[in-house]
């Protein structure tokens, strides 16, 4: 378990994270969602032990990550803007990382690299932004890490490469029970990859949901009744959102889909349809139910 306990971090006099708490299950893929400047990168840097939080701590299986070489050897970090030595090729950089990381192996590097269309003997300062990001992901996976931190790592990748990266990450998770934390400002980009989504806003994680659970429990129905129902007709249903257009009402509900459907059927609707609901829609409704304007949280 990765435990983020009451983490507060400041830049100059500005507080970026304040008493932030979260628990991330090992072996899961956690999507960290937030607008630009919300503090996603800062949180990843704190988790990796690069930044020392003003207060609080990050523990992996009960051990603090800050100034812990043994743990850091098992963590791979793909930053938003990766750094490589100026005149190095990918192979030279891999040799360097092989020297400094115990967990980095050249075999693994060769294996992962083979999946990507990159020239490993070419100087990396000639690489495009997308190519640099691919290289960073290759290096990160070559460490066979126990924890992979990816900061906006799909930005600038074309759809084919994006899928390739996702496949490789999933394969590593399956093979090594690797935990992944991916930050993004675009929920759609990571929704089909993550197990859990956390939304970072106002210096804290304001919402954290398992994708399976949320898809299971949040549903959208379209109902119509012959006669208008009294206000308390839906009192037995946990409604997140209710919108009426004439005689047709759209309901977003929380709870077991079949149970909610049965309760609605008891009200004898003339129409009862289940509508498709995207992950983004679910979050929009959830956030609104919690009093947030989702449009201000995600771009």
């Amino acid at each position: 378990m990765i435990s983020i306990k009451n983490v507060t971090h400041t830049y100059e006099k500005e507080t970026v994270l304040e008493n932030l708490c979260s628990e991330i299950k090992l072996g899961s893929i956690y999507g960290l969602i937030g607008s630009n400047g919300a503090g996603k990168s800062t949180l990843l840097n704190v988790i990796d032990g690069i930044f020392k939080p003003l207060s609080g701590e990050v523990l992996i299986d009960g051990i603090n990550t800050y100034e812990n070489p043994v743990l850091k050897d098992k963590i791979a970090y793909v930053p938003d803007d990766p750094f490589f030595f100026n005149s190095y090729s990918m192979d030279e950089m891999a040799k360097y990382l092989n020297q400094v990381f115990e967990s980095f192996t050249m075999e693994k590097y060769k294996e992962i690299k083979a999946h990507f269309p990159l020239e490993s003997s070419k100087k990396m300062n000639t690489f495009s932004k997308g190519m640099k990001r691919q290289a960073a992901i290759i290096f990160a996976l070559s460490q066979s890490p126990k924890l992979l931190l990816c900061d906006e790592c799909f930005d600038g990748l074309d759809p084919v490469i994006k899928q390739l990266v996702k496949r490789n990450i999933i394969a590593e998770v399956e093979k090594n029970n690797m935990t992944v934390i991916i930050s993004s400002h675009n929920l759609r980009e990571i929704e089909n990859l993550c197990d859990v989504i956390g939304i970072l806003h106002n210096k804290q994680i304001i919402l954290e949901r398992s994708i399976d659970d949320i898809k299971e429990v949040v549903n959208k129905f379209q109902v119509a009744f012959e006669n208008p129902l009294p206000d308390d007709a839906f009192s037995e249903i946990d409604i997140i959102s209710k919108q009426s257009k004439g005689s047709v009402t759209e309901l977003v509900t929380r709870g077991n889909k079949d149970l909610v459907k049965a309760k609605l059927n008891d009200l004898k609707p003339v129409i009862l349809d289940t509508l498709p609901l995207s992950l983004e829609d679910i979050f929009i409704y959830e956030m609104e139910a919690n009093g947030y304007d989702f449009s201000k949280i995600l771009v």
Partner: peptide, 18 residues
């Protein structure tokens, strides 16, 4: 002096003193 390189060196599995 550069956030990219500072973060890169920060990720390396060594104590600051090392």
């Amino acid at each position: 002096y550069n956030s990219r390189s500072a973060i890169f060196y920060g990720t390396l599995p060594y104590k600051k003193s090392t």
